[in-house]
Design a protein around this nucleic acid. Sequence first.
RNA 1: GGACGGUUACCCAAGUGGCCAAAGGGGACUGACUGUAAAUCAGCUGGCGAACGCCUUCGGAGGUUCGAAUCCUUCACCGUCCA
Length: 405
Amino acid sequence: MNINEQVEYLMQGTEYGDETLKNKMAEELRIRLQTCDKEGRVLRVYCGFDPTKADLHLGHTVPMRKLRQFQELGHDVTFVIGNYTSLIGDPSDKDILRPQLTTEEVEANARTYAEQAFRILDPEKTTIRYNAEWLSDLSFRELIRLASNFTIQQFLTRENFKLRWEKGDPVYLHETFYSLMQGYDAYKLKADVQVGGTDQLFNIMTASRKIMDFMGLQPNIAIILGILPGTDGVVKMSKSLGNHVPISTDAADMYGKVMSIPDFAMGVYYRLTTRLTPPEIAEIEEGVKSGKLHPRDAKMRLAREISAAFYGEDEAIKAEQLFVDTFQKGSIPEDIPSFECASGSLVVDVLIAAGLAQSKNEARRLINQKGVRFEGSVIEDPAFEINENGILQVGKRHFLKITPV
RNA sequence: GGACGGUUACCCAAGUGGCCAAAGGGGACUGACUGUAAAUCAGCUGGCGAACGCCUUCGGAGGUUCGAAUCCUUCACCGUCCA
C-alpha cells in the first residue's frame, strides 16, 4: 500500500465528531508516515486497555483490530495494560464513578484480557507493557508539573464531568488524574499514534497531546474509533444490554449472532471489525445497493470474516455450513448433543432437565406455540412421552439427540 | 443534621385498599412469512397443576384490616432541596 492508501485504511472507522478534526488527524498521519519513511523507521503505535472486566465482546476488540491493521502494514505495536490506571477506574465512558479494583483483580483480568486480545493481534509482533512500570515511579513533584498544563475548566467542560456536575453528583479529584496518567503513558512510549474509542477523545486529543508537547515530544496522532452497535444495530454493544457478541463462545454461535444484526448495521461492522480495506468495503456496499449482491450474502461474508478472525478459517466455514443447513434449508445439523432420559419421560420434564426450558410453564408454553418437535413432527400434547430414540428440536436452533434408558 | 420525593417482574414504567400475577413500552422467547437468528406481522413472558384452582412476588422487617403493591411503624438504599 502506498502512503495515501495506508492513511485511508488506517482512518477507516474513525469518528471524531468533527470533520475538520478528522481531516487534520488524517493529514498529520500522512505526514508522519512520510517522515518515518524518510527516517527509515516505522510508526510506534499503542493502545491502552483497562483490565476492568474479564470477558470481552466484539466491541472491545475494535481497537485491537485497528492495531492489527497497523501491524500488517509493518508498524510497531505496543499493547499497554493499564494495571496502574485501572486502580483509579477510567471515568470516561461513565456518568457515574467507577469502582476501584484491587491489584489482584487487575492482574487476573489482565491475563485473560491479553489472552483474548491475541486472537486478533499478532503475538510475535506485539509488545506488552504494564503502565505501572513507569507510573508507580512518578513523583508528586512531576505530577504537579504535568497537572499545571490543565485547567479545571477544561475538565468541567468535558461532557461526562459536566453532566455529573450539573446533576450535583460528585466528581472526585483523583478522576482527573486519569487523563494525566494516560498522557504520561504516551510520552513514555514516545508514541506516534494512539488508538482509542470515542470515549478516549479527551484523554488522547487533549491530555496526551498536550503532555507530549510539554515534555518536548511531537504529539501523537489520535485514531479515534467509532462505537460498535450491538446486535440490535443501534445501541452501543454491551453485555448488560444483552446485545453483545461474546468472544468466548464458539464459531457457530458467533456466526449466528453476527447474522442477527440488522442489514443496515453491516457497514459499521465491516469497517470496525474486519480487515477489509476501504475499496473492498465500497465494492460490497455498492453491490448491495445496486442489487448485484444479496444483502444476505453480504452479511454471510461478514459473519465468516468475523468468526474466522477468532476461530480460524476452518471453523468459520463449518459454522457457515451449519447455518445454511439449519436455517436456510431447515435441515437438522450433524453435531447434536446427546441427552439421556428415563424411558417414558414426559417431554416437559426432558426440556427442563436438558436446560431448554426454565420451568414447566415455560416448557408447556413452547409446546403450545408449536415450538417443540420430535423426529420432525410438532408435539401438540404436553403429556407426550418419550419412549424411543429421536431428535428433539426446540425453536430453530436447539437440538438434542434423545436416548431413553 | 433537616425537609420532601423515590425503590414494582429481565429493563423502563403505570398502578395509591378488593375487579392485581399486576396496564403500557423495550428486550427475550415461539410461530407465520421471507432473503438470514434482517425486516414485517402474530403470539407469549412468576411457579405448581390436565383443569376449577392453589402458592410466591411490588426494597427489608413488623403492624392495621375480612382483604395490602396500595394505609401505619421501622430499617436500608437512591434522588432533589436546605444547612
